[in-house]
């Protein structure tokens, strides 16, 4: 998966978690927490969805990498690069 495809995959997960949210204006550099008010349980759900959908494991000590779209994509890039695009 390319970084753009990984981003699209994250957007899909966020859409499931917050179906009312308009994600078209998401600022990739800003923290999810500030833009969407996500709390720690929501992050756990993102991690769970990554595991369910892509078999990607995010260990607890790496959760800090998931703060914004930018940091999430760069963190996941090496883990998801070998996955085929959907």
């Amino acid at each position: 998966m390319t970084p753009a495809e990984i981003r699209a995959a994250i957007i899909e997960i966020l859409e499931t978690i917050a179906p009312d949210e308009d994600l078209s204006n998401l600022d990739d550099a800003k923290e999810f927490r500030d833009q969407m008010e996500l709390d720690s349980m929501d992050f756990l759900d993102i991690v769970m969805e990554l595991r369910k959908r892509y078999r990607v494991q995010v260990p607890e000590e790496d959760y800090a990498n998931l703060v914004s779209m930018q940091s999430t994509v760069s963190y996941l890039e090496p883990k998801m690069a070998d996955l085929p695009a959907e």
Binding site: P19, E37, M41, D45
Partner: peptide, 20 residues
């Protein structure tokens, strides 16, 4: 109201993946 992101109601909608 719709669009509110704070408070227990907004939080439970995300956790249950439900729409307002």
């Amino acid at each position: 109201p719709p669009g509110a992101k704070k408070g227990p109601f907004a939080r439970l909608l995300r956790q249950l993946r439900m729409k307002w």
